[in-house]
Design a protein around this nucleic acid. Structure first.
Length: 570
RNA sequence: CGGGAUGUAGCGCAGUUUGGCUAGCGCGCCUGCCUUGGGAGCAGGAGGCCGGGGGUUCGAAUCCCUCCAUCCCGACCA
């Protein structure tokens, strides 16, 4: 490819409406242009990267026995109504009508379509297991599209669905995908971590997210620092170690204390001169059907995801002032479990071992001292409902947990029989009895992976592509395009490298060298080969590695071989 | 959806407070000269429904109303 023929409009200044680094660089380096919020044109450089990621994904899916197919983006409402998700999915589902006023949706995911397909075509256990996948555009009308390609409304995703006879088969498929995903992100040259995650609204039991580690990641993950332990979890999911009940020695007599205007844990600790660990924080949550009190240690935060799962409801919200007043008789900041009537009391595992705790008194400007769980109030549900923090012991091995930030680029899910039951996808077992097909679903955000790769691989000058997904492997730059010898030489090595299988771009623009260097850095080609005066006089070429900045002078007859060797190390 | 901000040439911005010449600047783009190892220089040039609509006014980028779009922060997600 010649630079003069390539549509790669680089910008000297980053567009003002880009904030995150991948968005800025994708725009500046001429990879994408915005069409609408969360909707982009993918220019030729992008297309090359996306195709490479897709190819890696394809190869790894196929390696595990996956079969590629293609399902429609445009999906009739009936299928979504049948699964119940036409109502449940909410405003995130793009909906439209055809000329006959029939409802359709743009597919945000394909459980409905594929389960219906398999329902019709698979009847016998002999046809299972199946791994079916596609790579195509997905549509989600996000509340807030942002961060360029990281959260678009239209994005490319690989979605694979597994169909098995039973849980054992599902486990096998799940492991295959776990391995496939690990290989995919390894081959893409990314630093990543599979983490345990919450299964959320899609339902199902076990799920892992594949996180590309980057400071800018939206997700916070906790992982065990021990070499031998591979525990890693999304903070939403991270579990705490079981707390020992260290007895109830030295319980003091319950007492009241005036605490004027002390509503927050911070205010109470300052006023009373006690550490927050001695406070039991009481938070009231409203669900669709009830109000519950959640108790955590004063220095902890409630994990609303855990609470949601515990209560099995769709939403929990912190109660408003009115509800608090109705339930406790006091205003916000003075709630406590002692004497609290008519609401379920849910306590975090740490709560029972707090001796002589401070809580709200359910009266304005009063707190209780020497509150002891069990003696002064009873707990309805004792469970893990709080956020686990870095520095706490790993729930598996007890070593310290560390924190990192990540970008979720893939997720694997055990669905079980959820969709097969809803949509009636069954097969006949050997006994001749109909059983629901056991399913799993597995997604990789292809466009997001491209963005994540940039988030993880960039410097002040631009993108630093891992060679496996770089749009081109190398750029050949003749320093002076007015020098016919340099141009001829550049043409020659461009031809030779291309013939040797190196994806090469020849920067044949009659720009000054500096301009070409800047663009090369910005676009992030892994290798740069400079054809200058010395190349003409001595037949030696400078090969510069984008990532390290390291320059190697290579004689002309060794060039192709050296470049190939260097690439295999990137 | 709540909160904040922005919309002027392909990109980055000034001008708007206090209405008034032909709407400016830098980069990019085109032509020519010159230059060619890190976004050079000189000269000439093209490019604007000042987000849209409505209003106020002798006169609107500027004031008022309204709609739209985009970005950022929160609750959701590949």
């Amino acid at each position: 490819m010649r630079a003069t023929a390539l549509l790669a409009p680089t910008l000297r200044e980053a567009p003002a409406d880009a904030e995150v680094v991948s968005h800025k660089l994708l725009l500046r380096a001429g990879f994408i242009r915005r069409v609408a919020a969360g909707v982009y044109n993918y220019l030729p450089l992008s297309m090359r990267v996306l195709k490479k990621i897709e190819q890696i994904v394809r190869e790894e899916m196929d390696r595990q026995g996956g079969q590629e197919l293609l399902m429609p983006i445009l999906q009739p409402a009936e299928l979504w109504q049948e699964s119940g998700r036409w109502d449940v999915y909410g405003p995130e589902l793009f909906r439209l009508k055809d000329r006959h006023d029939r409802d359709f949706a743009l597919g945000p995911t394909h459980e409905e379509i594929i389960t219906t397909l398999v329902r019709g075509e698979v009847n016998s256990y002999k046809q299972l297991p199946l791994l079916l996948y596609q790579i195509q555009n997905k549509y989600r009308d996000e509340r807030r599209p942002r961060f360029g390609l990281m959260r678009g409304r239209e994005f490319i995703m690989k979605d694979l669905y597994s169909f098995d006879r039973d849980e054992k088969g599902l486990e096998k498929s799940y492991m295959k995908m776990h391995e496939a995903y690990t290989r995919v992100f390894q081959r893409c040259g990314l630093h990543f971590r599979p983490v345990e995650a919450d299964s959320g609204a899609i339902g199902g039991s076990e799920t892992h997210e594949f996180m590309v580690l980057a400071e800018s990641g939206e997700a916070s993950i906790l992982f065990c620092e021990s070499e031998s332990c591979d525990y890693a979890a999304n903070v939403e999911r991270a579990a705490q170690i079981n707390q020992p009940d260290n007895g109830k020695e030295g319980m003091n007599k319950l007492a009241e204390k005036e605490t004027p205007d002390c509503r927050t844990v911070e205010e109470v600790t300052r006023f009373l001169g006690i550490p927050p660990q001695e406070i039991i924080k009481t938070l009231l949550y409203e669900t669709d059907t009830e109000v519950v009190a959640v108790l955590v240690r004063g220095d902890r935060d409630v994990n609303e995801i855990k609470l949601l799962n515990l209560l099995g409801c769709l939403r929990v919200d912190l109660a408003g002032e009115n509800t608090i007043k109705k339930v406790t008789g006091a205003s916000r900041g003075f709630s406590g479990p002692v004497g609290l009537q008519g609401v379920k009391i849910i306590a975090d595992l740490e709560v029972p071992s707090i001796v002589n705790a401070v809580t709200g008194a359910n009266r304005d400007h009063v707190h209780l001292l020497n509150v002891n769980p069990g003696r002064d109030f009873s707990i309805d549900i004792l469970t893990d409902v709080r956020m686990v923090e870095a520095g706490e012991p790993c729930p598996r091995c007890g070593q310290e947990l560390k924190e990192a930030r990540g970008i979720e680029v893939g997720q694997i899910f055990k669905l079980g029989d959820k969709y097969s039951k809803l949509l009636g996808a069954t097969y006949l077992g050997e006994s001749g009895k109909a059983k629901p097909i056991i399913m799993g679903c597995y997604g990789i955000g292809v466009t997001r992976t491209m963005a994540a790769a940039i988030e993880q691989n960039n410097d002040l000058d631009g993108i630093v592509w891992p060679a496996a997904i770089a749009p081109f492997h190398a750029v050949v730059i003749p320093v002076n395009t007015k020098d016919p010898e340099q141009v001829a030489l550049a043409e020659k090595i461009y031809t030779n490298l291309t013939a040797a299988g190196v994806e090469t771009i020849l920067d044949d623009r009659s720009e000054r060298a500096g301009v070409k260097f800047k663009d090369a850095d910005l676009i992030g080609y892994p290798l740069r080969i400079i054809v200058g005066a010395k190349a003409v006089s001595e037949n030696t070429f400078e090969v510069k590695v984008r990532r390290s900045g390291e320059v190697t002078v290579v004689p002309g007859d060794k060039l192709e071989q050296t470049v190939l060797e260097m690439l295999s190390d990137l």
